[in-house]
Simulated scan of single mutants.
Amino acid sequence: MTYEVERTEDQWRQALNPEEFQVLRRAGTERPFTGALLEEARPGMYSCRACGNELFAAQTKFDAGCGWPSFWEPLRPEAVEHREDRSLGMRRVEVLCAKCGSHLGHVFPDGYGTPTGDRYCMNSLSLEFTPNAA
């Protein structure tokens, strides 16, 4: 697939630190309860750390108790791409940035009590948080 933001592997390695590269470009997962954005509660916007694409509004974030920042819907449906993921011996739905194809996390239909019933379980390393201006 062609994305608006395209880089070679070497260019991605230069743009991202090793942990970010592992998650964003190699579909890695940070350890639960370790992400810098897990406890972030200020109003603002969550964007793709690799390309700056706006992904999630802070008002859709909720505490799912799973150890990763969770959201009940993306800012716009076209901001993310969904792809079937059959790794680890299970069937999941991977979530990628629609602008650069970077791995963000997975979406699960277990966001109980949310308006959509979805839980977009994202890696903090995949996201950049920008608080609203005061």
Results as ranks from 00 to 15, higher is better:
Val80Gly: 08
Glu39His: 15
Glu54Asp: 13
Gly89Cys: 03
Pro77Cys: 06
Arg76Glu: 13
Glu40Pro: 08
Glu81Lys: 13
Glu84Thr: 12
Gln59Met: 03
Glu73Ile: 06
Gly52Ala: 08
Leu55Phe: 04
Gly44Phe: 09
Ala50Gly: 14
Thr60Gln: 07
Phe71Arg: 10
Asp63Ala: 15
Leu88Trp: 10
Thr60Gly: 07
Pro43Thr: 08
Glu39Tyr: 09
Ser70Val: 03
Ala57Ser: 14
Gln59Ile: 01
Leu88His: 15
Pro74Gly: 13
Ala36Trp: 00
Pro69Met: 02
Arg86Val: 11
Pro43Val: 02
Cys51Val: 07
Asp85Val: 07
Ser70Lys: 06
Phe71Pro: 07
Phe62Ala: 02
His82Thr: 11
Gly67Pro: 05
Lys61Pro: 06
Leu38Tyr: 05
Leu38Pro: 00
Glu54Gln: 12
Gly35Asp: 04
Gly67Cys: 08
Ser47Trp: 01
Gly52Ser: 11
Gly52Trp: 08
Leu55Arg: 12
Gly44His: 13
Ser70Trp: 05
Gly35Ser: 06
Met45Val: 14
Arg49Pro: 00
Glu39Arg: 13
Arg42Asn: 12
Gln59Glu: 15
Gln59Pro: 02
Leu75Thr: 05
Glu78Val: 05
Gly65Asp: 01
Glu81Asn: 07
Asn53Val: 00
Ser47Cys: 10
Leu38Val: 07
Gln59His: 14
His82Arg: 15
Pro77Thr: 03
Arg76Tyr: 01
Leu75Ile: 11
Arg76Lys: 14
Ser87Gln: 05
Glu84Trp: 00
Leu55Met: 10
Pro77Val: 01
Trp72Lys: 01
Ala41Trp: 04
Glu40Asn: 10
Ala79Tyr: 03
Ser70Cys: 14
Lys61Ile: 00
Glu78Phe: 02
Pro43Cys: 02
Asp63Leu: 08
Ser47Ile: 04
Asp85Ala: 07
Leu88Pro: 00
Asn53Thr: 11
Glu81Trp: 01
Glu73Leu: 11
Ala57Ile: 04
Glu39Gln: 14
Glu40Arg: 09
Gly89Arg: 04
Glu84Ile: 05
Leu75His: 12
Ala41Thr: 12
Glu54Gly: 11
Met45Cys: 11
Glu40Cys: 10
Glu39Trp: 02
